[in-house]
Structure formats: C-alpha cells, structure tokens
Write a protein that binds this DNA or RNA. Structure first.
Lengths: 230, 230
DNA sequence: CACGAAACTAACCACGTGGTAGGTTTTACC
DNA sequence: GGTAAAACCTACCACGTGGTTAGTTTCGTG
C-alpha cells in the first residue's frame, strides 16, 4: 500500500501523456481563438508534434474539441456535483459562486467556454448539442436549488426560481466576456456576489475553490459529460 | 420641397445598393457562424456576386466586418442616444430594456453581437478594439444612469452603480447565448425585467422598440461608431 | 536483447481561402 | 447616343487546411 508500489502500476503510457498534452494545448488555443481560427497544425506545433502525429491520437478536429470540453466537464463535475441542489441549495449556490472566483485565476478556462458556447449556437457546429445539453442541465440544477431555497425561506421570497436560474447563469456568462475584454475594470466575482445579494443570498465570504492543479483520471460516472452523437 | 423633388436626387447608386446588400448578407452570415467560419465566397454567393466583385466594394474581409458592426451601431445609436442617461436615467434604462425586447424579434442581430464579441476577446481579432471600446462606453453610460437614479431615490438605494451596470450588461449578454441555444426555454425579456425588478425598477410594461424596418443613411455624428485603426 | 505495437514523421492529396490583375459589362451623366 | 467610370467577372496566385498513406523511430513487455 505504499506510494512506491502504486506509482509504477499507474504510470501513464507515452501515448496517454501525449494525449494529455494535446488536450491541454487544444484547450489553450481554442480558448484563445475559438475552434475555427485554430488549425490542427497550430495545436500540433504547440505540443511539439506534427499534425499527422496528433491525428494518430484523435480521429479528427471535431472529436478533439468534444474531448477537450468533456474533459473539462469531468473536472467541474467533481466540484459541483458533490452537493445535491435540492438537499443543500445554499451550499450548491455557494459552490457556483466559488467557481466564478476560481475562474478569475484561469482566464483560459473562462475563455474556452465563453468562446465555444457562442460558436456552438450554430447548429452545424460540432459542439452544438453539447452546449444545448449543458445549459439545460445547469438551468435545471439551479432552478431546483432556487426552488428548494424558496421553500425553506420564511417569508417566501417573491422571485421565480426558473427566471432567477436563467439570470444567474446569464450574469456569470455575460461577465466572462466583459472580464476577458477589460480585466482591470470588471470584477466578475464582486458582480456575481452583488447579484446574489439582490436575491437575498450573502456570499461575500464565499471561499475560493481549489485550483486546477492536477488532472486525475477521468471519472467513470461523469454526470456532465455529453457524448456527442456526430 | 415635395417628395417628388427629393426622391430622384437621393436615389442610391447601383454601387450603394450592392454595398447595402453585401452588408446585410455579411451581417447575416457572420451572425450565423462567426467571422472565421464564413468566407468571402460564402458572402458573395449569398449576395449573388463573385468574391472578387465583393472585394471591389470592400478592401478586405476585416474591413467588411468592421463596417458591418459600425453600420449596426449607427442604427442602435439613433435609438439609445436620444436620451441622456444623466438627465433621464429611468427613460434611458427603459430604452435598454426595450432593446432586449426588440432583439427577440431579430435573432440574427443578437447572434451577431454575441458571436463576434467573444471572438473579439482575442487581441488579434479585427474587431478587438471595437468591442473593448463598445463595452467601456456602455458601462460608462449605464453607470451614469444608475448613479443619477440613485441620487434621485429616497431612501438612497444600496447598490453600487458601477457593479450594477456590469451586471445588467452581463445579464443581457449572457441571456443572448442561452436564448440562441434554447429559444423556447429562455425568455430574455422576462429575465431582464425580473433583474430590473431586483434593483427597484419596474419595467413590466416597457413598450417594444420599433423594428429594424428601414436602414436610412448613416448619421454623420455617430457616437457609438468605433473607427478601427487597423 | 528481440519483437510487435504504438507513436511519430514526411510526403502527398483535394480543396478552400483572401487577394490580385486584366478584361467585360453595366451604369450614370452629358 | 456616346463615353468614362463603376461594377462585376474570369482566371490566376500562393498559401493553408483536414485528412491519408507509407515509412521510421520509440516504447513497452517478455
């Protein structure tokens, strides 16, 4: 059971290590410039491979994008879905706000979702289905949290849980673009906390979430992972 | 001074008419798929020209994009800037909400700004400077409106005008992407009105703005037009 | 160390892209 | 109607793109 006996058994193969580097580079470059403006050769050069080498690991550009997104979702799921929004709505919302605070330390991650989600509005985009589902899921979770919270609040608050869920998601998304365009002017976290204050939630002391320091193996039961059908 | 003496003198030339069709097609296609995923040949075919014919009217793809954006700004400016945010803050905010309501009838226009603004986060993007300025201007105007509104409200409201401006812009922007991805589920207008209710503004009866039915000549004093320096 | 599989490269392919240049057609004006 | 300019087209250019194929190098295991 010592670390020595475990480390050699789980050492990633050369291919797995290269795949991880490809995913990291693709995430970074897609985040910077979007899917269409980044070529396979760009990503491959960033990794230190040829584009044909990259295509040995991933069957094509579109499946690479889906894998980048799914990979990041599994990371988020570990944080967000350890709390049930109906059982602990306040804690769930606190985690959501914590995600915003953490995101301010990872502009690349913010940019990835901001950039690709708007591209994915186009039904022909490889990640279109992925984002339709992702937003539906998040709205559902947040609506459940606000509904549960309202049921526990006396006097009962006068907000519509579904509209409020849409608003909170919108504030978070909308602030990303503004922040990316003017990071010195726009304070994402303060604005989200201020929004929550508007609906009666005090998260002014919400602690930050842990950084993305490690990328452990993907969880086999990924809730947020959308397997693309393309 | 009769209409008959004016109409022949101001009839657009063939070139002007073609330019207008190019701008409309470019706006539509950029809105659908973004700058990078649309080629000049796509736009030209949509107009019914060759791409070389298109390039007779616009010196290049990048300047075409800037012109599309500036053109739409002049249209918005006519609506938004007929009211001074400091003199009539409530009326100004009412117009902002009216813009959202109107936008629900023009998915293409919504998509254009949503799509290109996130692309433009990339400093190498042709519209980067344009959007940095646009957001700064809008934040300034909204901050001025909320500041003036707070000064006229007794007891003084407890919101920070600058954060609130960021939040309102964020809600409007963030709702666009959600709406474009799930138009049957997300009600942009209701969510924005609900947000305003959260800060003490009742716009539940805000009237819609006029449609984009006509495209009159550009105003010579366009406030929101950002002349690109590229 | 040997060997098969994985990882990776070089070269190729067909196609698409923004832009250029010269020629043809259309427009606008006198 | 004549003419010059504007509008538009055809053909070309160099380059970039995602993907394929065959060969070479590296890895992992016995």
């Amino acid at each position: 059971m010592s670390d020595q006996t475990q480390a050699p058994a789980v050492r990633p193969s050369k291919g797995e290590r290269t795949r991880a580097r490809i995913l990291a580079s693709a995430a970074e470059l897609f985040a910077a410039s979007g899917f269409h403006a980044v070529s396979l050769r760009d990503i491959a050069a960033h990794v230190g491979l040829t584009h044909a080498g990259l295509l040995h690991h991933f069957p094509g550009k579109e499946s690479l994008l889906i894998e980048v997104l799914s990979h990041r979702d599994r990371e988020d799921a570990k944080v967000l879905f350890r709390v049930d929004p109906e059982d602990s709505p306040q804690e769930f919302l606190r985690l959501i706000v914590g995600v915003v605070h953490r995101n301010m330390r990872t502009p690349g991650l913010v940019s990835l979702y901001a950039k690709i989600s708007t591209e994915a509005v186009d039904p022909a985009h490889p990640a279109h289905t992925y984002f339709v589902r992702r937003y539906a899921l998040l709205r559902g979770q947040l609506t459940a949290a606000f509904t549960a919270l309202a049921a526990r609040t006396d006097p009962r608050p006068d907000y519509d849980p579904e509209l409020t869920a849409q608003m909170l998601l919108a504030v978070m998304d909308g602030l990303q673009t503004q922040w990316l365009l003017a990071p010195a002017t726009v304070d994402m976290h303060a604005a989200v906390v201020a929004f929550c204050a508007r609906i009666g939630l005090d998260f002014s002391d919400a602690p930050p979430l842990p950084d993305h320091r490690s990328d452990p193996e993907p969880s086999p039961t990924s809730i947020m992972s959308a397997e693309a059908e393309t």
